[in-house]
Design a protein around this nucleic acid. Structure first.
Length: 283
DNA sequence: ATGGGGGCCTGCCGGC
DNA sequence: TGCCGGCAGGCCCCCA
């Protein structure tokens, strides 16, 4: 599920309940997700105050006053939902536990944060906060959209000479961090670039367009997620990801929405993943 | 170095 | 109604 905009939406949803609050109880219901949890994770989290909730790419970073940072990845199916009342004005019961509730944090403000992940491709780890950037999972990440480091000069340099498909290159978190299959499809559609084009054979001017469209689609998706935050606390945890309307992703057979284009969206499989694109206007 | 493909898990959906 | 194959928004790791 979660690419950068969804993870940022989750972060914003959790922040009011977690920042400044102490984890009074950390319930860990199994020894691992994708990898084993760090040693004594529950003990290291219990009693710690969350100074700040940050994000790097698709990772949520909970900076603790213990000097450690909890790194959280949602994988494909991970969800983090809030129940209870962080303001403390009203009494709210917590919903009954559900299947795949693997980690549950009770905060000292009454909020409960539940990490649910059916497929268990998610992950959690603890790292000394000053070593966060050097963590194995984070050290290899490229720049994110919407930062100064991500620009067309950078992209041109990284793609120069690369024979891999542009679709695969944009999914490579070491080149650009935070994109997944959906937003790569959407950005390539907006830029009019075929997912089948070789990464190193795209003109600089088209890479400028691509850079701008990546930034646009990510910013719009974050805004869209943010606009649904008022519903964040609903019991079903629905974040409204799917309210975002896609122009290519998932629209196989549907007419292309680009002005003047009479083509229709096709689905092809590239390196085992679906790509949705318009063969008429993405070249 | 680069790239392609397998594998990790469970749930859901469509077809028979 | 039940079974089965295919598919899913991620990412590490192994191999050529």
């Amino acid at each position: 599920m979660p690419e950068l905009p969804e993870v940022e939406t989750v972060r914003r949803g959790l922040a009011p309940s977690m920042e400044g609050a102490v984890i009074s109880r950390a319930q860990v219901n199994r020894p691992d997700l994708r990898w084993p949890f760090p040693d004594r994770m529950s003990e290291r989290l219990t009693g710690a105050r969350v100074n700040r909730l940050g994000r790097r790419s698709k990772y949520i970073l909970a900076e603790l006053d213990s000097g450690e940072t909890l790194i959280i990845h949602l994988g494909m199916s991970g969800r983090m939902t809030v129940s209870g009342d962080p303001i403390g004005l009203f009494h709210h019961d917590h919903p009954a536990p559900e299947k795949h509730d693997h980690v549950v944090f009770d905060m000292d403000n009454g909020a409960r944060i539940t990490f649910n992940d059916a497929r268990r491709f998610g992950a959690m780890d603890l790292v000394r906060t000053e070593d966060t950037d050097q963590h194995k999972l984070l050290a290899v990440l490229g720049p994110e959209p919407l930062t100064n480091a991500f620009n067309s000069d950078y992209l041109a340099e990284r793609l120069h000479g690369r024979k891999t498909l542009i679709k695969a290159a944009l999914l490579d978190q070491g080149i650009i961090a935070g994109l997944g299959n959906i937003y790569v499809c959407e950005a390539l559609f907006r830029a009019g670039i075929s997912p089948k084009r070789q990464a190193g054979r795209i003109s600089v001017s088209r890479l400028e367009t691509l850079t701008a469209k990546i930034n646009d689609v990510i910013a719009e998706a974050i805004d869209s997620g943010g606009s649904s935050l008022k519903d964040y606390r609903q019991a079903d945890g629905e974040l409204g990801y799917f309210q975002h309307s896609f122009q290519a992703y998932g629209r196989e057979g549907a007419p292309c929405q680009r002005d003047g284009c009479t083509g229709s969206i096709r689905r092809i499989v590239q390196s085992g993943r679906s790509s949705f694109y318009c063969p008429d206007c993405q070249t």
